[in-house]
Design a binder for these strands. Sequence first.
DNA 1: GCATATCGTTGAGATTGTCAATGGTCTTGG
DNA 2: CCAAGACCATTGACAATCTCAACGATATGC
Lengths: 154, 154
Amino acid sequence: MRANPVESPEALDRLAGTTLASEPFFLAARVSGQGSGAANRRLAELGLKVRHYSVLALACSDVHPTQRELSHYLLLDPSQIVALIDELQALGAVQREPDPRDRRSKMVVATAAGRALYRRAKKVVDAASSDSLSALTTEQREDFLALLRLAAFG
Amino acid sequence: MRANPVESPEALDRLAGTTLASEPFFLAARVSGQGSGAANRRLAELGLKVRHYSVLALACSDVHPTQRELSHYLLLDPSQIVALIDELQALGAVQREPDPRDRRSKMVVATAAGRALYRRAKKVVDAASSDSLSALTTEQREDFLALLRLAAFG
DNA sequence: GCATATCGTTGAGATTGTCAATGGTCTTGG
DNA sequence: CCAAGACCATTGACAATCTCAACGATATGC
């Protein structure tokens, strides 16, 4: 998630053949870092970061996630979810609603404004992912997504 | 990179079908987070983190990377590379050597002790990656690696 | 009912990320 | 050759993020 110093290609060529380049966790970190870096830069104009975007996306879904579920899903500490939701709530994008099944937990749901914001944000995020993956063909992207899903869950 | 709260599966099942689960950057972040989390936990017994491991791996290669190259490759700020190498140097694992081509930059090379440490570290990291990817067949892992490489560079 | 576990929240402390400034070195144009 | 500008490692300051312990409120199992 750096400021993108134009990524000098010489260094990459020299290093891309090392054994480290065969470690999935390292490659995943690079993909993730570049991807969310690009997404963050574009989301800045909406006053969001990928963290907010992720929460907003789930709040817009029909599953009405609990804060604890967001924590597990996004691999973030519950206290960070609190702060994130406070911010999104201050933007009028989401609300906390009581969970009918458990009065300890709160469901996070998007407001109409939140859903509108999400639609705009999704466009810039999709654009960012798209040119993060410009080296892959359409078919490769589908394979990649399927394998990522398998690796991410499962 | 959390403490691994046993990842309650119910939440994942409910949320894995949302549109967010189709965003490559999000999936990559999850894979990366889980993978380096697991690796970090195992590397702790060697007094290392994945950051150190990554630097050490490159220092053990035959490319003799420059600190600036490490910075580009690992997506870390140059100042963080300084700290990382200070620590590895304090462990006697790496050395800074003058770059014959450019006296401004310094090459980072592993010592014999550093290479021995790397071999031990690589075992635990490989074990961690292996069970991070336990949901993939051997063939799928190869495809996944190839696609990751393409996405990470390219 | 009681003991124990979970949920959201708060707060503190450590780690990491980001950025500006500096001295030393390279490179380029004149 | 020289001067201007760029690049490298380093330092230091600050912001963002992570990690953890504690708390009141609620749930669950005995």
